[in-house]
Amino acid sequence: MIEAESLSLRYPGGREALGDLSFRIDAGEMVFITGRSGAGKSTLVKLIANLLLPSRGVLRVLDCEPSRLARRHRPGLRRRIGMVFQDHRLLPSLSAADNVALPLRIQGAPDGEIERRVRAALDLVGLGQRARALPATLSGGEQQRVGIARAIVHRPPLLLADEPTGNLDPQLSVEIMALFERLGAHGTTVLIASHDLPLIRQMRKRVLVLEQGRLQEDFRPQAEPA
């Protein structure tokens, strides 16, 4: 599903954002990437999302090697990936339903298909009744759930989330994580960049720890003794 071998990224100014990363994530896994601010979590997510290209090393995502893909084929790979952002990035002039429909419109889905899938995605995140609402009238948690519905509406095999609970209270964060866990149970690979350590510990999933762009640890927290 995702495979990195000696993966490095150096910005044009010369600063190394990621260095010599090697890991493998299998299909259906739910994995957290954590580390301090500036450790390279978001950069790694952007690399996997095919929004940046590595300077060195090999990265394989969904059986493709983005750096070997012709420029015109890169959007095709992005269409198979769902993205959730910390700041939701909802379009303010569009309703929740229209925001969720965005990936399907990009794929050229017919209107009937879009309507059906958007309704299903909003129901899944518990916002079926708020389909016509504009983002400004939704709470932070609701906006994040709309963002998640948008990321899963086209049923991508890979879901990437960059600090998805960064602006949410602990209760909402747990609900959002439960939602990701449900998606994982349906076979979607979920990769979450987060610095919320208590939440990560609570989820007991595999964790990649980054430190100054390098992989420090790759472990799965054990269940805490009762």
Partner: peptide
């Protein structure tokens, strides 16, 4: 902003 988002979701 809309186009930037569309690119992320795979618009060519």
């Amino acid at each position: 902003e809309e186009r930037a988002l569309q690119r992320i979701f795979g618009a060519s």
